[in-house]
Amino acid sequence: MGGVHGFLNFKEENTMKKICFLTALILISVLVLAGCSLGKKEANEVGSLKFVANGEDFAREGFVSKDNWQISFDHVYVNLADIVGYQANPPYDAYEGGKIKFTSEVSLDKVYTMDIAQGDEPSVVGKVENVPVGHYNAISWNMVKGNEGPAKGNVLVLIGKAAKDNKTINFNIKFDQELLVKAGEFIGDERNGIVQEGKEAELEMTFHLDHIFGDFETPADDDLNLGALGFEPFANIADNGQLDIDNQGLKAKLSTSDYGRLTELLFSLPHVGEGHCHVEKIQG
C-alpha cells in the first residue's frame, strides 16, 4: 500500500476507507428503502370494480318505435362472457379497433345471462374485489350463445309486445350471431371506471335497442331513425298477432334488404353509455 499511497499514513488511510464504506452503505440503504416503500404503497392500493349491463329505459320501460309501434319488453335476455375491464394505455379508440394495450386488467370468467328489462337500474353482472386502483378506461366482452337458461342457444332474446292502432303483436325474437365487443371509455353523465383506494367503481355494457326499432321522439331525419329498421317489418311477418322467430326464420321471412340491415344493426347495439364500440363477428 505504501508504494502507491505513500502520502497517507496507515491510520489515516484506514479511517478514510471506513468513511468511504459507511457513506456508500448509508446511501445505498436509503435508496433501496425508498424504492421498496414506493412499490409497497402502490401494491397495497386496491378497490373494487363492478360490471353492469344496461338496456336503459328503452328496455325497462318500453318506447315508441320510429314507425309508431308502442313496444314494451317482458324480458330482454343477453348472454355475456369473457368480460374484461382494462387500464388501457394508450386509451383505446373503438373507431380504429385493434388490440387493447393495458397496464392492468380485471375479468369475470363465467357466462352471464342478464335480463336487462328488469328493475329500475342497470343490472349487476358481477363484482371483483381487491383490484388495483386506477382508471379502467376500456372494456371488452363477448355476446355468446347460452348453454342454459332462457336464452339457451341464442345470444339475444327479445320478449314483449308491440301495439299500434287496434293491433297487438306478442313477440319472441331470437338472435344467435356471436359478437366480440371492444370499447374505450364510458361516456355518460358521470365518468366511470375510476377505482380509488377502498372504493367501488363501475363499468357498464350498454345496449341500445332503439338502434333496431328507431325512436319516435327523435327526429325522423336523425341518423338513428334513418338507420333503424322500425317494427313494421316484424309486424308484417307475424301470424295472428304472434311472432316467435329465430335468426333463421328472420332470414327466411324478412326481405333480403331488411335482413341485411338488421344484421348490421346488431353490430351497433352494444355501447359504453353513449360511446361506440368496435364489434366483430365471432366465427362459429
Binding site: P90, P91, E185, I187, T218, D222, L224, E274, G275, H276
Partner: peptide, 15 residues
C-alpha cells in the same frame, strides 16, 4: 386530458 362531446344520446371522446 380527456374531452367528451355529448348530444341527444350520442357521445364521443378524445384524449
Amino acid at each position: 386530458w380527456t374531452i367528451q362531446a355529448r348530444y341527444a344520446g350520442h357521445g364521443a371522446n378524445i384524449n
